[in-house]
């Protein structure tokens, strides 16, 4: 059975006046252990899609199913990193991570503390563990949010441009760390839906790339490159470059005809 299934999902924000449909009849299946990247231009509905998967909003039509069961709200089998870093401002970095871990109810107090520190170290924030969010930079806050999300060890990870505010080096390291976390005995265990603007990031991480135009899924491309993808052979590199060209073309095509998507959404 598919881990995540979107079944004719439509969504409109409950606006006064005429509700505009932000997602229109989406169908998507994500298998267990799959890493799916969602690409698309700003405002095409990526965050909205992630909110539906999280259960923060419910589809106006159709259903989001996880392990075959319709989602009716947030669950501890899912964790999310929001596009705008959202920590609890009254908790220190460590308390934020710890609170997330404790909420899963999987570990005892001592173990939870150890895990929180381990994950903070992973995002290179061991020294900032006792600082409050207002004392951290945007990128540092985002790293705490990532640590919290990863430390919760949920089956499904939802990430909304998590690395946008980070510098290249730590970005690379976190990409690798996140990828490493998914594997157990050579088998990918965690299912990841990862929103990004960055084509190269998607090509580095994804098993599949979903390209969205406003309200719809315009393309669903598998990325059959071997892992790890740091040093690819020449043949594979050619394959990757071909994929990149396809994606760039998808972006460009929208650029030429920006009205078309709006027209067929109405």
């Amino acid at each position: 059975m598919a881990k995540i299934q979107l079944d004719h999902v439509s969504y409109s924000y409950p606006n006064r006046g005429r509700p505009a449909e932000v997602l229109h009849d989406l169908n998507l299946t994500v298998e267990r252990g799959e890493f799916v990247c969602v690409l698309g231009r700003s405002g095409c509905g990526k965050t909205t899609l992630l909110r539906l998967l999280a259960g923060l909003d419910l589809p106006t039509r159709g259903a989001v199913r996880i392990d075959g069961e319709a989602v009716t709200g947030p669950g501890t089998d899912r964790s999310i990193v929001f596009q705008s870093y959202t920590l609890f401002p009254w908790m220190t970095a460590r308390q934020n991570v710890l609170f997330g871990i404790q909420q899963t109810g999987k570990w005892g107090r001592a173990e939870a503390r150890r895990l929180a520190d381990a994950f903070l170290r992973k995002v290179e924030l061991a020294e900032a563990a006792d600082k409050y969010p207002y004392q951290l930079s945007g990128g540092m806050r985002q790293r705490v949010a990532i640590a919290r999300s990863l430390a919760m060890d949920t089956e499904i990870l939802l990430l909304d441009e998590p690395f946008g505010a980070l510098d290249t080096r730590i970005r690379r390291e976190l990409q690798e760390f996140m990828d490493a976390l998914r594997w157990r005995d050579g088998q990918a265990e965690k299912t990841v839906v990862f929103v990004t603007h960055d084509i190269d990031e998607a090509l580095y991480l994804a098993d599949r790339i979903v390209y969205m135009t406003p309200g719809r899924i315009a393309a669903d491309l598998p990325v059959p490159l071997p892992r790890p993808r740091k040093d690819l052979g020449p043949a594979e590199r050619a394959q990757r470059d071909a994929l990149r060209r396809t994606l760039v073309e998808l972006f460009d095509r929208e650029e030429d005809a920006p009205c078309r998507c709006a027209a067929d959404a109405s």
Partner: peptide, 16 residues
């Protein structure tokens, strides 16, 4: 709303 969403994702009991 962002803080509320973050909190909801952690499935707190009413007491928490």
């Amino acid at each position: 709303p962002q803080i509320l969403d973050s909190a909801r994702m952690l499935r707190p009991t009413n007491r928490t």
